[in-house]
């Protein structure tokens, strides 16, 4: 049965369903207890599962991350919330030096099946330190799996998959999407997971990821033939609007929602670009040394002979995230995306 659900509620439901299915899943962070998180993603979890399974910590992000590492070492599956993108930075040393490295250091003896949830990116009129697109820091760190859902259905599915993933996952939640709504057949989605009562607290042994996991797989969000728009996270909805506008002007644009930044789905992206011969990469983060830069490099390395034009980027400017009244100048817009599409040397075609 189809119901209307917000992105936030989908995440909340995914957490509750995984906590129900697997008693090794514990949720903690700042204000995630009785309050339910500042975005209400953990709403009701303490009430339903008790204070031992969903709890508030002292206000210290490195402490949260370091403690999660130890809990994951000792048989639990912690899901931690960093309250905002820029408030995750105090935990950066733990993430880079231990979360990302410990499985490798121990030759796979220590697995860290943990999820680091980070409300990220802008478009919400937030004040300073509340709107950073920090994905490049994590994507650049070997050992981290980095994903960003852009639809309500992916919010639900990808969070459950991240929790079951055997390795640490940085789960980026575009906060401007939290209150977006979609029609969703939740029961059908839930039935895909079955209802196993997992009890993994006796050992650190992780389970394998589902065979059809979204981790490592991009999706074609809109099919097209003339050019490929490659994007992820908060920019997907903007890019979809641009593609719809282009269609009215007679241009057929394919939209790829990357979803999984690490691992990166070269196959889906390259197949699309080889088909269309043109590509624009759209992302909110500053463009210099960014995920968008990496995608452009990969495309031109692999699709050079299929390309009719240079691969372009539409990204944030190389400036600190702007104040609320200025952010619309900064964020990739439908017009800026369409301008980039116009520059793809159509006259040579």
């Amino acid at each position: 049965m189809s119901t209307t659900m917000t992105f936030a509620k989908a995440l909340n439901t995914a957490l509750a369903d995984e906590m129900e299915a697997d008693r090794s899943v514990v949720v903690f962070g700042e204000d995630v207890g009785p309050l339910g998180g500042v975005f209400r993603i953990t709403d009701g979890l303490t009430q339903r599962f008790g204070e031992e399974r969903c709890f508030d910590t002292p206000l210290a992000e490195s402490g949260i991350m370091g403690m999660a590492i130890g809990m994951a070492m000792n048989g639990l599956r912690p899901v931690v919330e960093m309250q905002f993108d820029a408030f995750a930075y105090p935990a950066f040393e733990q993430v880079v030096s231990h979360v990302a490295k410990m499985p490798n250091r121990t030759r796979g003896k220590v697995k860290l099946p943990m999820v680091i949830r980070i409300p990220y990116a802008g478009g919400i009129g937030g004040v300073e330190h509340h709107c950073d697109s920090s994905e490049s820091y994590y994507a650049h760190t070997p050992g981290l799996t980095v994903v960003a859902p852009a639809t309500v259905e992916d919010a639900y599915t990808m969070l459950r998959e991240a929790i079951r993933f055997p390795d640490p996952v940085v789960f980026l939640e575009p906060k401007k999407l939290y209150f977006s709504k979609e029609q969703l057949d939740l029961e059908a989605l839930q039935s895909r997971w079955g209802t196993p009562a997992l009890d993994r607290t006796d050992g650190p042994e992780p389970t394998a990821a589902p065979a059809d996991s979204s981790i490592g797989r991009a999706v074609i969000a809109r099919e097209g033939t003339d050019a490929t728009l490659i994007t992820y996270g908060p920019s997907v909805s903007t890019v979809m609007k641009a593609a719809a506008a282009a269609a009215e002007e007679g241009r057929s644009l394919e939209v790829i929602d990357i979803r999984s930044i690490v691992p990166f789905d070269d196959e889906t992206v390259m197949a699309s670009v080889r088909k269309t011969g043109r590509a624009v990469v759209v992302a909110e983060a500053p463009g210099f040394a960014s995920v968008a830069s990496e995608i452009v490099a990969r495309v031109q390395e692999r699709c050079f002979h299929s390309l009719a034009a240079p691969v372009l980027r539409v990204t944030g400017f190389d400036i600190p995230y702007p104040a609320p009244k200025l952010e619309h100048f900064y964020l990739p817009s439908v017009d800026r995306i369409l301008d980039a599409v116009d520059e793809l040397q159509w006259e040579d075609a």
Partner: peptide, 28 residues
């Protein structure tokens, strides 16, 4: 293997391992 004798890796970044110890104790 840290699990064989319950000895974590020898940490080089100072004090970071104290939090892992807290996490192992918390899970226990």
């Amino acid at each position: 293997d840290p699990y064989e004798h319950k000895v974590s890796i020898q940490a080089t970044p100072l004090a970071t391992q104290l939090l892992h110890a807290v996490g192992v104790a918390h899970a226990a």
